[in-house]
Design a protein around this nucleic acid. Structure first.
Lengths: 353, 353
DNA sequence: GTGAAAGCGCTAACAT
DNA sequence: ATGTTAGCGCTTTCAC
C-alpha cells in the first residue's frame, strides 16, 4: 500500500493524507483521525527512499567500523554498543546503516558514503591515534561523532570516550599502594587510541612513583586469552618477574591467570592480576561483587570498568549525533566517562615488601 | 555533485552518463572513458535513495536482531558475523541496515520493515524455538535467511546453522567414553533454539548410554562467567556432584572453572569441564592448541567449535540471501555446519571409574 | 481545510 | 550511439 492507493481509497488527495500523517496543523481533526485509522488498518508506512528523496534527508545514521588485517576480531562489546544506539534511533525514527571499511581504501570509502547521501550523520568507531578519517569527515561536511578519541588530531570534533588514561593510572596506583615495584602491562594493540591512552596512564603512575619503566614488562597484542597467556609466560620467565600485572581486557586477564597457574604460582600471593574491561556484564549481571563464592579475604579490587554500561554509551553517542544533526552549527560536544573500581579478587600486596 | 551537474559539465545527457557508468553496451568506448574519468575526478557516486526509487530496489539488506528483556547481552560474536556478511555486501554493492527489535512488538516491526521498502531482503538473528517471525516473513514476501533454526516451525525456509545437537552429543559422548556417569550441563537460555538443540544432544547421549537424566545437573541461564560460577557451585554442593560438566560457552566454562577451584577441587581430576563456543578466536588465533604452555599430559579435547569461523558463517549467510534475491522462486536452501573438537585441557577420566 | 502540481535524482522505455 | 520523456513515491509550495 502506498500513498496514492491510500488516498484514493479515502477519496482524499495525497497531500491531505501526507499532512494528516505527518502532524501538520491545517488538517481537520475528523480527517486526521480517519486517515490515521486507515493507515493503521492497511499497515501503511511511507516508502523510506521516496520520503528521503523528497525531504533531502535520509533519516538514517551510518556506523562505520574499520576492519584491520592486524585486527581479526571485532570488539565483542560492539553489539551492545550498537544496541544502545539503535534504541535511540528507533525512538527518533532513524534507520541504522552499518559500513565495514577494510583499512587501506579508507578515504575512498568515506567519500562514497558522503556522496551516496544515504545517511545524515556518522558514528566513527575504533579511532587510531592519528586517524585520518576525522579530518576527512570534517572536510566532507557530514555530521559525525567519534566513539573514542584520536590523540594526534588537533582540530576540534565531537567525541565520547572513557577516561582510559585515568583508569589505568588509578589501577597502577592501586598496585603501587600495595607496595608492588615490578608492575607489568599486558595491553591491546597500541596503534588503537584507547590502548595508547591506557599505556600512558600506566606510565604516568610508574613515573609518578619514581619506578623504573621496563619494556620487558610491557606487551601489546590483540586482546585474546592466548595472547594474555603468552605475555604473562614471557614476563614470568624473566630474571626479575613482575609481582603484579595490569591487563587491558578480561580475556587477557584470563589467559594471564592460567599462565600463573601453569607456572605453579599462586594468584594474589606470588603474582597479582588486575584488569580493566569495557563491559563487566560478563561478570556482574547487575551485581557488584563478581564471584560471591570466593574464599574469604580475597575480595580486594581487581576490576576497573566504565560506570555506565556499554549500551548506555551507545545511547549517549547516538543522542550526541542526533543533536548535532539538528544543530549543524553548534560547537562539537565532548564527553569523558569515568571508570570505576569494582570489588573482585586475585590481588594482594607485594610479597617482597 | 549529482548526475545533472556531471552531465551538464560533460555536455552529455543524463541518460548517456548513467548508461556509461552502469556498463550499458550502447555507449561508445570513448564516451564511456570520458564519463568515468570525470566521475572519478569529481567523486561522483549516485544518490542511493534516488537510484533505489527509480530501480525499485533498495540495494540494501536488513539484519534484524531481537533484543529480549531477559537477554541483556548481545552475543559477542555478533560483530564478527556481521563483518563477514558486510564483506559480501560490499562486493555486491549492497548496503547493510541493522534493525533492533525489542520483543513484544515484533509483528509490527517486521511489517514496518517490509512496508518501508528500504531493504531487499532480511537476515533473521537469534531464532527462538517457535519463532513467529518466520511465518510472518513468509507472508510478507520479503526474501530472508535465518542464522540458526526454529525447531517448531514446519514451513520450509532458508537457514544456515551449526549442528548444535551433534556437537553436544559428541561432547557428552566423549565424557561418557571417559567413563563419566554423572555429567552436568550448564546451558544458555533454552528458549533460544540453539540452546534447546544443545540440550537435546546432551540428553540423547545420556539416554543412548542408559544413564539417568538428573534435572539437578542441568542449568539454563545467560552465558556469563557469574552464571557459570553459580551453576557449578550449586552442582558441586549436591549430595552426589557431577564428575564432568559440559558448558555452552567459554564464559560459562571460565566461571565453572573458578567454582571448581574455589571448592578446593582439581580440574581434570575431581571434576572435568568441556565447553563449546561459537568462536574460538579468543583462544586460538590460528593455532590448534589453545595454550601450549599447559603442563604435559593435560592436552586432551575440551572444545567443540564451528569449523568455519563465525565471520565465514556471516559471509555464507549473506551469499545465500543474495542468491535468494536474485532467484526469488528458488526452493529455500539450507546449510548445516559441522562443529569440531579442539585440543585443550582440564578434562580427565572419571575418578570413580 | 483541501487539492493540483512541481520536483527530489535517478533509471528505463521509447524515440531518433 | 545519443537524447527525450515519463515515472519511481513522497513532500512541499502555491492556489483555492
Amino acid at each position: 500500500m502506498n500513498l496514492k492507493q491510500l488516498s484514493d481509497h479515502l477519496g482524499l488527495s495525497q497531500t491531505t493524507v501526507s499532512r494528516a500523517l505527518n502532524g501538520y496543523p491545517e488538517v481537520s481533526e475528523r480527517t486526521r483521525e480517519r486517515v490515521q485509522n486507515a493507515a493503521e488498518k492497511h499497515g501503511y508506512s511511507p516508502n523510506a527512499r521516496a520520503r528521503g528523496l523528497a525531504m533531502g534527508r535520509a533519516q538514517a545514521i551510518g556506523h562505520v567500523l574499520p576492519l584491520s588485517a592486524q585486527h581479526e576480531m571485532v570488539n565483542p562489546v560492539f553489539g551492545d554498543f550498537i544496541a544502545g544506539a539503535g534504541e535511540v534511533y528507533a525512538g527518533a525514527n532513524y534507520d541504522l546503516h552499518l559500513t565495514l571499511v577494510p583499512d587501506g581504501d579508507e578515504e575512498a570509502a568515506y567519500h562514497k558514503i558522503a556522496a551516496k547521501r544515504s545517511v545524515d550523520g556518522i558514528i566513527v568507531h575504533g579511532p587510531r591515534m592519528q586517524d585520518p578519517r576525522i579530518d576527512l569527515l570534517g572536510t566532507l561536511g557530514l555530521p559525525f561523532v567519534v566513539h573514542g578519541r584520536a590523540s594526534d588530531v588537533v582540530a576540534p570534533y565531537a567525541w565520547l570516550d572513557v577516561d582510559n588514561t585515568r583508569a589505568f593510572f588509578r589501577a597502577a596506583q592501586f598496585l603501587i599502594d600495595l607496595r608492588h615495584r615490578r608492575i607489568g602491562l599486558i595491553n591491546g594493540l597500541e596503534f588503537m587510541d584507547f590502548a595508547h591512552r591506557r599505556r600512558l596512564g600506566y606510565l604516568r603512575a610508574l613515573e609518578g612513583a619514581g619506578l623504573q619503566v621496563d619494556p620487558a614488562l610491557m606487551s601489546s597484542a590483540e586482546m585474546t586469552e592466548i595472547n594474555g597467556h603468552h605475555a604473562m609466560r614471557r614476563m614470568l620467565a624473566l630474571p626479575s618477574p613482575p609481582t603484579a600485572v595490569l591487563t587491558a581486557s578480561i580475556m587477557l586477564a584470563i589467559g594471564a591467570r592460567r599462565a600463573v597457574e601453569d607456572a605453579g604460582l599462586t594468584l594474589g600471593r606470588d603474582v597479582s592480576i588486575i584488569t580493566h574491561d569495557d563491559d563487566l556484564s560478563y561478570l556482574r549481571n547487575g551485581q557488584d561483587v563478581p564471584l560471591d563464592g570466593a574464599p574469604a579475604g580475597q575480595n580486594v579490587p581487581i576490576f576497573t570498568a566504565t560506570r555506565s554500561s556499554v549500551r548506555d554509551a551507545g545511547r549517549r553517542v547516538a543522542e550526541m549525533l542526533l543533536a548535532r544533526i539538528a544543530q549543524p552549527g553548534a560547537a562539537p560536544e565532548t564527553k569523558l566517562l569515568e571508570a570505576e573500581l569494582i570489588l573482585g579478587r586475585s590481588t594482594g600486596p607485594c610479597p617482597h615488601a
